[in-house]
């Protein structure tokens, strides 16, 4: 089980040939109180970089881009009633969706935890 990070502040935890995707703690902190998450539909396929979800705070909406290509196999229904999960537990219970990994090579373009940490430090 390995977790990768994108420059768009998504994380993906890979288990076998599928992965779980969410936004990072850094991202939720920047977005402020999250009031709504629009998750993708199960069964739809997306290419890396496609707009796949939307996170809304009171005064802003941010598009989330698929960190890797694949078919959505599950979404986090809990977010519908409790979008605050993303604020509270962005990198665990606040996950967005699970996806099949169609091209494992795409993972190589993502960062590891240390790389992401350095990346966000550079943004300050």
């Amino acid at each position: 089980m390995t977790t990768y990070y994108s420059e768009e502040h998504e994380w993906i935890t890979v288990e076998g040939d599928s992965g779980t995707v969410g936004i990072t703690d850094y991202a939720q902190n920047a977005l402020g109180d999250i009031v709504f998450v629009e998750v993708p539909e199960v069964g739809n396929s997306y290419d890396k970089g496609d707009e796949i979800a939307v996170v809304e705070s009171v005064k802003a909406a941010s598009e989330i881009y698929a960190p890797i290509s694949g078919e959505v196999i599950a979404v986090n229904d809990a977010l519908e009633d409790e979008p605050a999960l993303v604020n509270a537990q962005a990198e665990t219970d606040g996950w967005f969706y699970k996806v099949t990994i169609s091209d494992a090579d795409e993972l190589k373009e993502l960062m590891d935890a240390d790389g992401y940490k350095a990346f966000t430090a550079g943004l300050e």
Binding site: F36, E56, V58, K59, A61
Partner: peptide, 11 residues
């Protein structure tokens, strides 16, 4: 209001 033009603009 995130549905609306003053926040979502072209979307």
């Amino acid at each position: 209001s995130t549905r609306e033009q003053h926040i979502r603009r072209e979307k």
